[in-house]
């Protein structure tokens, strides 16, 4: 606003007024953005440099919360666990979803019904299905161990053992979200041009060669979109883990989100929790940038 127009350019008298007038049009959006995005953000920053205990005191501590995070083993492990969980919870649904999409892209009887049944898990409420899974995981009385032992496979301890808890949670996630990947990839398949396939067939390519050299490269951008969506979802998974294990046994499934929740709403350490939020945010931004660059490179390569 302080900028002086160059003397040579003489503005009409109305120009400034118009600028002012336009400003009022963006005001509602600006207020909403400020209230629901900027303010919480600035306030989180503010909290993160305080030792802020709900129901206790608040004192300025500078970067002490971040220093504490660096030395906090429990936090360090939660970061590694989050990455491990995310990796598994992206790869498994993407592989299965891709496979399912290729199957459902073929014509077979009752295909519509089969597709509908396949996407049903996606419709379910995470908390409700988490509770059902919990019952099925009971090592003595759950239906899963009954099924395993009835076909001669030794029983598993599922979420009740530190070594099997994360793969088991990933299994629930996979069951829940494979349909989403399938839908995205199926949409991609439908949009593919038919001529490369015809050309490949004329050249005598077998089905595997068609998939490897025609379908896969053409489909990759869609798979990348699915992978990005899954990554973001997997990083922020909370409900499934919290309902089924609350981060246990011990801290074996305590991801950043669970750690964060406990700090803020069980220990009422708002300052420390805000510092975790900031670190988590940076982590998500970095991962998203990596994925987006990857997607961009794909897009350029296929051009």
């Amino acid at each position: 606003m302080k900028l002086q127009p160059a003397p040579a350019v003489r503005k009409r008298r109305g120009a400034r007024l118009e600028e002012g007038g336009y400003f009022w049009f963006i005001a509602p959006a600006a207020i909403v953005v400020a209230a629901v995005i900027v303010f919480p953000w600035v306030f989180t920053l503010y909290m993160s440099v305080h030792a802020w205990k709900l129901g206790g005191t608040r004192e300025f501590v500078g970067l002490a919360n971040f220093a504490r995070l660096l030395g906090d083993d429990r936090f360090g492990w939660s970061v590694l666990r989050t990455l491990w969980f995310t990796l598994l919870a992206v790869v498994a649904p993407v592989v299965l979803g891709l496979f399912a999409a290729i199957v459902f892209n073929r014509k077979f009887p009752l295909r519509g019904l089969a597709r509908t049944v396949f996407i049903l898990p996606m419709m379910a409420t995470p908390v409700a299905i988490a509770l059902v899974w919990t019952m099925m995981f009971h090592p003595q009385l759950g239906v899963l161990n009954y099924l395993l032992t009835s076909v001669g496979i030794p029983a598993s301890q599922w979420v009740y053992h530190a070594d099997s808890v994360i793969p088991t949670l990933v299994m629930v996630e996979t069951w829940h979200w494979t349909p989403l990947v399938m839908l995205i990839v199926l949409g991609g398949l439908a949009a593919l041009p038919s001529d490369p396939f015809e050309a490949a067939r004329i050249d005598g390519a077998n089905p595997w060669q068609v998939f490897r050299h025609v379908t896969w490269p053409l489909l990759l951008p869609y798979v990348a979109v699915a992978a990005i969506i899954r990554t973001i979802d997997a990083l922020k998974t909370f409900d499934t883990i919290f309902v089924i294990t609350q981060g246990g046994p011990g801290t074996a499934s305590e991801t950043i989100n669970i750690f964060l929740y406990l700090q803020a709403f069980a220990y009422y350490e708002l300052g420390y929790a805000s510092a975790v939020v900031l670190v988590f945010f940076v982590l998500i931004v970095v991962l998203s940038l990596v994925m987006l660059r990857w997607r961009q490179r794909l897009a350029e390569a296929t051009k």
Partner: peptide, 18 residues
């Protein structure tokens, strides 16, 4: 029982009640 590492009262109650 195996898995009691992750039991809260409700899982214990189920085991005992069964």
């Amino acid at each position: 029982p195996p898995g009691s590492i992750g039991f809260n009262w409700n899982e214990c109650q189920t085991s005992f009640a069964q």
